[in-house]
């Protein structure tokens, strides 16, 4: 591993280009469309969630129902950094330090859980990860550590560190820009994995783990590596979205399994294991949601039909239809049907 694999780097950049282009469009829209920046930030959050989740689930075929625990670990890590700096000072240092601690905690959690749970297959793994998520939540609440069920409130501390205006900026535009940056990192990481030996190994694992092992692939190593990468990205996302942007880290929120479900939905809608899948998945999911909520529901409401909260009832059948009819998702379906030139772009 002494020489940089230029070929792999070039292919991966080429692979990443369409996804990066899409994120750039979103970035332009963020500033260009007045009053919609937070809608775009929301799409972005779910796209990154899908992107990070996809690295593990999409590439290995393992379902981590407890994925949200990594986001929680990141949110707590970021808050811990702020509480450490609080009273000491350090100003804007809290963001890099916070992200660093978030990444370290998320990586340790992923390493630990991976070393234990990744010895299990399929269903057993899925069950074990739910256990990890719930176990951690009730540990925080039951031992009354890290603020217990009340959670950590860090807005005041952030205001003390960088001032009121500084915090205002940090919690809005800056947080969103960092999220865009994270999206780019996630895309590049994914494409780099896909273009290297690791990508082939993971694909082999997804197809047939025993055969992969028989071929001499170090199955455990690659699985844990993918798990940790996915976990660290999730941790950074949790830190940005809940700690920096939200200012409150409360167990009932950050360990909510709903976020894992949403990640699964987004990845499955868009296409597991693809680069563009999560972006399309998030666009469809949030687009459907926002449209029905903000534009359709009020119209129905004025016609006397109560239409709130119906999106899940619609989403579940769509998810079932996708799994039965198009298990490779939207992007996967296009890829398997499209002419080869187009296929190259979409992959």
């Amino acid at each position: 591993m002494t020489v940089i694999d230029w070929f792999a780097l070039r292919t991966s950049l080429k692979r990443a280009a369409p996804a990066l282009a899409l994120y750039t469009i979103l970035l332009i829209l963020y500033f260009a469309v007045p009053g919609k920046s937070q809608l775009i930030a929301q799409i972005l959050f779910y796209a990154v969630l899908g992107q990070a989740f996809n690295i593990f689930m999409g590439m290995t075929g393992y379902v981590d129902f407890g994925y949200v625990a990594f986001l929680a670990a990141g949110a707590y890590g970021f808050s811990i950094a702020i509480l450490l700096l609080s009273g000491v000072g350090g100003g804007w240092m809290f963001i890099p330090l916070g992200l660093l601690i978030a990444a370290i905690i998320a990586a340790s959690l992923a390493g630990l859980v991976g070393a234990i749970a990744l010895r299990l297959r399929g269903a057993y793994f899925a069950i074990a990860t739910i256990g990890v998520n719930e176990g951690l939540r009730y540990l925080v609440e039951g031992l009354n550590i890290l603020g217990g069920s009340i959670g950590l409130y860090i807005v005041k501390d952030m205001k003390e560190l960088v001032g009121r205006e500084g915090y205002q900026l940090a919690a809005t535009t800056l947080a969103d820009m960092l999220m865009f940056l994270l999206a780019g990192v996630a895309v590049l990481t994914t494409s780099l994995i896909l273009s290297t030996r690791m990508g082939f190994a993971l694909q082999a694992i997804r197809e047939d783990e025993d055969a992969a092992r028989a071929l001499g692939i170090n199955v455990t190593k690659y699985k844990i590596a993918a798990f940790m990468i996915s976990g660290v990205l999730g941790g950074a996302l949790g830190a940005l979205n809940w700690a920096l942007k939200g200012g409150v880290v409360e167990p009932a929120q950050v360990f909510l399994i709903l976020y894992t479900v949403e990640a699964i939905v987004i990845v499955m809608l868009g296409g597991a294991g693809t680069l563009l899948g999560p972006i399309f998945g998030a666009l469809i999911y949030i687009g459907l949601n926002f449209t029905s909520n903000v534009y359709i529901a009020p119209v129905l409401e004025s016609a006397g039909i109560k239409a709130t909260g119906l999106h899940l009832i619609i989403l579940a059948p769509i998810l079932l239809a996708v799994i039965i009819a198009a298990p490779q998702g939207l992007v996967g379906a296009i890829r398997s049907r499209a002419p080869s030139r187009l296929r190259e772009i979409v992959v």
């Binding site: 009053g35 919609k36 920046s37 929120q253």
Partner: peptide, 12 residues
């Protein structure tokens, strides 16, 4: 909470 932000922005 992840829906609230975009709705508040829309309102304002």
């Amino acid at each position: 909470p992840d829906r609230v932000v975009s709705l508040v922005e829309k309102l304002i």
